[in-house]
Write a protein that binds this DNA or RNA. Structure first.
Length: 337
DNA sequence: AAACAGTGCAACCGCTCTGAC
DNA sequence: TGTCAGAGCGGTTGCACTGTT
């Protein structure tokens, strides 16, 4: 006849636990220790099934449970462990003292998963979902040059820093197909830069003008300059990728920006760079940054400082606005259909 | 102010897996 | 080897809270 049910469902209470029930369970477990859950409700005078008692104890009443919101470090740990372990919540919980598997699972499903999706990252595979932002449809790959009109249209959608970076990167290699690929990758990556930039400076960087844009496209940048520039930007402390594209940027009018990332973002950037031979030299910089011990307080402009004490919305916006575009009212969407 | 929708979280359900006996 | 209890997991529900209309 198979296994008998763990408890007689009839007559047993369900739903939220009362403080009285909690007190009974705590007192019983303190006196007798956890375990023997099937007989516990009867011995403790509880009208609950053993499984309900076990879940209540392990997920809520255990003295070592840490309540309250997840810290930024905990969140990072969850993401990194999930990328390695998958949905093994108990294994993840074992590495987060005071957190339960159920709590982590709920937090994943209600916060992190949504955030990753908004970032265009598949929460299962932890890889970027290109289908969410298929910029390739906006650029004519048959053109020997990057299609200027399309790029100008892109400029209306993307922060100018993104395009400056893209154009800088495109000068690294003379292969146009590869250029386009690199451009597409880094246009998306640089949404990170823009988003953090906005978070710190609380204002929108000015858009460059079309005539400036043509000058940018026509300008040739020595590849070693650009590479060293980007390498220099990776000398941020505390494991944060600090990018300052401004001093050597292609437009002289904007202010210096420093950009920081959660280390989770480094993995993505590092992976992206490693896929392209033009950027392999950057990997050492990533490695040195990632191996920097977190031994001193983070700078005020670090992601930790920004996120730990900020609101949930702010934390969301830090990573979730990666694909947020400014769309001018005059934009004709038919052009993209 | 009330109705409604969206969100977060505790708790539950059903199932599988594991280890002890 | 089969049974059982405990543990773990994915999915779901119900409710309280909050923001919007």
């Amino acid at each position: 006849m198979g296994r008998s049910p763990c408890c007689d469902k009839n007559g047993l209470k369900k739903g939220p636990w009362t403080t009285e029930e909690d007190t009974k369970l705590i007192q019983y477990v303190q006196a007798n220790g956890p375990g023997n859950w099937r007989s516990l409700p009867k011995n403790a005078g509880l009208q609950r099934c053993g499984k309900s008692c076990r879940l209540r104890w392990t997920n809520y009443l255990r003295p070592d449970i840490k309540r309250g919101r997840f810290s930024f470090e905990e969140e990072e740990t969850i993401i990194q462990l999930h990328s390695a372990l998958g949905n093994k919540w108990s294994a993840i919980a074992a590495r987060l003292p005071g957190r339960t598997d159920n709590e982590i699972k709920n937090y994943w499903n209600t916060h992190i998963r949504k955030r990753l999706l908004r970032m265009g990252i598949d929460p299962v595979t932890h890889t970027r979902r290109l289908d969410l932002l298929d910029l390739s449809s906006l650029i004519n790959n048959n053109s020997p040059q990057l299609n200027l009109s399309n790029l100008i249209r892109l400029q209306t959608l993307l922060n100018p820093d993104a395009l400056r970076l893209a154009l800088s990167l495109s000068s690294l290699n003379n292969n146009n197909n590869q250029n386009t690929e690199v451009l597409l990758q880094n246009l998306q990556e640089n949404q990170l830069l823009n988003n953090s930039h906005q978070l710190q400076n609380h204002h929108q960087a000015p858009f460059i003008q079309p005539n400036q844009f043509e000058n940018i496209i026509n300008q040739q940048i020595p590849s070693n300059l650009t590479t060293s520039l980007i390498q220099n930007q990776m000398q941020g402390n505390m494991g944060h990728y600090s990018a300052n594209f401004q001093e050597n940027s292609l437009t002289p009018t904007t202010t210096t920006t420093t950009t920081t990332f959660p280390s989770y973002c480094y993995d993505q950037m590092k992976g992206d760079f490693s896929e392209n031979s033009s950027f392999q030299s950057m990997n050492n910089s990533f490695d040195s940054v990632l191996s920097t011990p977190m031994s001193s307080p983070p700078p005020l402009n670090s992601a930790s400082a920004l996120l730990n004490g900020s609101t949930e919305d702010e934390r969301n916006s830090f990573c979730s606005d990666l694909f947020k575009f400014e769309i001018p009212e005059s934009l004709n969407f038919d052009d993209f259909m």
